[in-house]
Every structure is written in structure tokens, then in C-alpha cells.
Write a protein that binds this DNA or RNA. Structure first.
Length: 192
DNA sequence: CTTTGGATCGTCT
DNA sequence: GACGATCCAAAGG
């Protein structure tokens, strides 16, 4: 296939550099794949919305580990969300994977996501994406150079990247650290 | 179409 | 004991 798995060096940069670069990349897990269309950056050192802002705890320890690994967490009593750990080791940065356009394994995704009516309902939100891909507790710390993988394909990079404030947070609401592909119908909350 | 409230529990104070 | 980096069904216009 025409995908090349991203090297660890891709992730060993400031989280604000990595986040927009993840748009258009392909998340692949077994027979499932999707193109990332929306992300949010969380930088532990100076970001009051980050899980790592208050220092290391058992839950967020993965954020302090090596870049290029998944940080998954459970929230609202029922949902899992997945992040990509970024930055030098010991620097707690992560990029939340908020939405993707399903590419392969769409039938499996519909099976896992009973509430989805259309293809745009499958991965148009951080918890939806995890449900569609079957990501959860077992994947905290998973190495993205092994499985699941994040890869670049042969196509052109997204040209129209939008930025704005992040969704669903109560602190750090002034930081424009959400990035998405403008007009893509698979972005969460898309209207139009 | 938009708005509202319920579900549900691990985590940290 | 309070509160989420959310989702969805139901109710209201």
C-alpha cells in the first residue's frame, strides 16, 4: 500500500507543531483505517486544560513518557478518548484525536457504533472515533510505530487548515489550539 | 431544526 | 464529594 508509517522523530517536536501536521494522516488499526480531520493540542507545561497541568498522576503518566505513543483516558463515566504523545521525553504534551474520515473497515465501524446513521457519524468526535476503532484501556501506551499506526499517504497535505478554541473545556478556553480541515463533513459538529 | 438533560464512574482534592 | 478533553435521545419550535 502507499502508506508510510511516521517515524518517532515526527512526534518529538512541540505539540503545537505536531498537531496541524497530523491532519490528513492515516490512523490504521488492523483492517480499520481513517484519515485524521480534526485534532486538539494539549501542552502540559502551560496549558490549564491539560490533564498533565498539575503534574504527573497515575492516570496521565503516559503523557510524560516517550513521544509517538497513545495516551487513552476514560471520561464521563462511559467514554474513551485517544491522544498522541508529543514532545521530548518528560515534556507532557499530547494531541487529542477528535475526528477522522473512515477509509477501511466501515462495515465494522457501523457494527460497533449502533447509534450511527451515516458515515459522518462514525468518527466525528473523540469518543466516537475510539468506539469505531475499538480503542480503550488496552491501548494506553501503545506505540504508534507498531500498532495502531499513524502514516502519511501519497496524497497532498491538507491546504485549508482552520484553527479555533478547543471544545468541551472550562479552562484555557482562550487558546486557539484546535485544528481541523475546513469544510470536511467528518469534523465533529459539522453543519452544512 | 435547536435545546436540554440523563447516563455513569474513575480520578483527584 | 465534585466533576469531567462526551454522546445521544427526547422534547420543544
Amino acid at each position: 500500500m502507499s502508506e508510510s508509517v511516521l517515524p518517532r522523530s515526527f512526534y518529538e517536536r512541540d505539540v503545537l507543531e505536531v498537531a496541524p501536521d497530523l491532519l490528513g494522516k492515516v490512523l490504521r488499526y488492523g483492517a480499520l483505517s481513517g484519515r485524521i480531520v480534526e485534532v486538539e493540542a494539549y501542552r502540559g507545561s502551560d496549558d490549564p486544560a491539560s490533564h498533565a497541568f498539575g503534574g504527573m498522576t497515575p492516570r496521565n503518566a503516559t503523557m510524560f513518557g516517550p513521544a509517538g505513543h497513545l495516551y487513552t483516558y476514560f471520561t464521563y463515566g462511559m467514554h474513551w478518548c485517544a491522544n498522541v504523545v508529543c514532545g521530548p521525553q518528560g515534556t507532557p504534551g499530547a494531541v487529542l484525536l477528535r475526528a477522522a474520515r473512515p477509509l477501511d473497515g466501515i462495515d465494522v465501524m457501523f457494527t460497533r457504533r449502533a447509534a450511527a446513521r451515516r458515515e459522518t457519524d462514525l468518527c466525528s468526535g473523540p469518543a466516537k472515533l475510539c468506539q469505531a476503532f475499538g480503542l480503550g484501556a488496552d491501548h494506553d501506551g501503545a506505540d504508534l510505530t507498531v500498532a495502531p499506526t499513524m502514516a502519511a499517504d501519497a496524497g497532498p497535505d491538507p491546504t485549508d487548515v482552520a484553527t479555533g478554541v478547543r471544545i468541551g473545556i472550562t479552562r484555557g478556553t482562550d487558546l486557539p489550539w484546535r485544528y481541523w480541515i475546513r469544510g470536511d463533513p467528518h469534523v465533529s459538529g459539522f453543519r452544512g
